[in-house]
Design a protein around this nucleic acid. Structure first.
Lengths: 161, 161
DNA sequence: AAAAAATAGTTGCATTTGTCCACTATCGGG
DNA sequence: CCCGATAGTGGACAAATGCAACTATTTTTT
């Protein structure tokens, strides 16, 4: 296959992507890079930039006081180890506090701090706007389709629904 | 909002995702984690696991002999520096060779080795199968929609089309 | 009631990865 | 011939990820 590729391409527009052209996971992976980068730019200096999980953790602790690290870990697809480091970091930034659960002394309960709550509110706006802006060139209805499908995928992966 | 959260959730199914529930970029980011992990598992020990770009690079060098690092870099959304390291690594594994271009002595031309070609062929199958398997629970037509939309997004991002 | 298994979290480590920045070499246009 | 843009390299460095071992506690078995 692909017998003739006469001259080596010197510009992206001359290139075809081989089998990746029809590989869903390729597009997920590349679009993810772009979307994450753009998001990081907007979170510049906000204590919650870089890596996956900080945002979700912040919002969940804010809206579910007392939630456990292990529950969040499942939702952001991290192991307890990674989650622990995330919590350390965020506690260090004064965004949340941890205390041992009364019912189960193995478990922790996470609570938001005033500073964390403030950031959470700011981040809600930022994140929503970012996603809207980034995918703005896609028609509304297609965005909806896309999200419906990906939501199902996510729920399946995270063991929800 | 979210006035009552009575008891802290102790199980994922009791949690709602706050604004992330309706945030496209959240789903892209999480589904990406799962897809990439699954892919890595299948590439176990294959010289081409981990990180983005190795697969694309391998396939492109194989199907576009003489292609330049900078062209690939654009397609995988990396800077020249990161691309260089990728090429180093793959050359080190004996998957490709680099030589200075005759027309432009600033530029390199990348060529596949027999070992690289063999791996490329194996990877084509693997990657295609992986994507199909992973998204198998999504109906065919929805997969198509999803891919159409993401392809457009990608092409826009990478500066194609 | 004792033992075994499962669960929550911590810690340290090794590996990667991506990024930033400065530097060289070359090409192309005025 | 000079200047700005382009291709690639090399090094330093901050983060992120994943793994495995270890403690403490709860739950299940026998």
């Amino acid at each position: 296959m692909n017998m003739m590729s006469a001259k080596p391409p010197t510009s992206v527009s001359e290139v075809d992507l081989d089998v990746l052209e029809n590989t869903l996971s390729f597009y997920i992976r590349t679009v993810n890079i772009a979307v994450s980068r753009d998001l990081d730019d907007r979170l510049e200096g906000l204590d919650v930039a870089r890596g996956t999980g900080k945002i979700t953790t912040l919002l969940l602790v804010d809206s579910h006081p007392g939630i456990r690290p292990s529950v969040i870990a499942q939702l952001i697809l991290k192991d307890r180890s990674a989650m622990g480091k995330l919590v350390d970091q965020m506690e260090g930034h004064g965004l949340l506090t941890r205390s041992v659960s009364a019912e189960d002394s193995r478990a922790l309960e996470l609570y938001i701090t005033p500073k964390g709550a403030e950031l959470a509110e700011k981040v809600r706006g930022l994140v929503t706007r970012q996603s809207a802006d980034f995918f703005e060139f896609i028609p509304e209805d297609e965005q909806k389709q896309l999200m419906d499908i990906l939501r199902r995928a996510y729920r399946r992966i995270a063991g929800l629904s």
